[in-house]
Amino acid sequence: MDTLIQLDDVRKVFEVRRRAGLLRRERRTVRAVDGLDFEVAHGEMVGYIGPNGAGKSTTIKMLTGILVPSGGRLRVAGVDPSRERTRLARRIGVVFGQRTTLWWDLPLRDSYELVRRIYRIPDARYRANLDVCVELLDLTELLDVPVRQLSLGQRMRADIAAALLHDPEVLYLDEPTIGLDVVSKVKVREFLRQVNSERGTTVLLTTHDLTDIEQLCKRVMVIDHGQLVYDGGLDGLHAAGESERTLVVDFDRELPPVRITGARSVRTEGPRQWLAFPASTSAAPLVAELAARYPLVDLSVREPAIEDVIARMYGGRGAAALSRE
């Protein structure tokens, strides 16, 4: 396997000082990342998920060289990120979900020009990359608009483009779809899939939205309490957690809770009913049967929340060690 990212027992310990009383301060060490081992090959697209405070951002910050690990060995493209941060910066792209790198008061185009000059991107390369990003992310109309006038979804698309102009080998995305409308989410996902498959850019993304993972990543890593608790396919994650998706159906009138094989009724509220079914199975046969037997008006499928999947999987901290043999 052609390894790009390699972590070997990587740890990060913070010392937190907390006020405990008027003058007294309490010192406490927090193990934000506690012995991470994993490898990511060139061209992979990996979802990195976990509850808030599990250590996702800390991992990304160590991978990008922002934070210096407290222990272990970490290599990205053969380089120690914290020692050669500036040199590595030319080879990686980073998008921090809610922290834009674009210039607020200037037309979007100017931010890209700055990227071109700071990264010393050759003209032809720059124009080609910009053209691709502009077309796929639908930015044509936005290039001459000051960034402050962009919507959240437009700005996120613009930020992703900015991170790709210098042809990074790996792209780190921290919550790229958070707060976006449905249309923007779809565009962002489609674009990432294309970047990954056509340019071979390795992508590592953190998210709270399992749909991102489902549509993008063959591989998902789950971190909890600073440790990797799962590394594999999404279906495996669902199977391990016995997680359930929810089918929300609207009938044209109030009905008694429906009985149907492969799903169980969990809630009824007027004409609306909630049916849970295993996340590893398809919703299609279920929908077909419902439509055949009941007066269906509308329906939607809800993915299980990541927190629920993880909670159900390991029932908290103690079991986390089990998966690390």
Binding site: P69, S70, E84, R87
Partner: peptide, 19 residues
């Protein structure tokens, strides 16, 4: 010991090694 890789107080390179 892996900890020796990153002694916390140690100087880390701020600049590129090319000078």
């Amino acid at each position: 010991m892996a900890d020796a890789e990153y002694p916390v107080g140690r100087r880390t390179a701020l600049f590129e090694p090319r000078g």
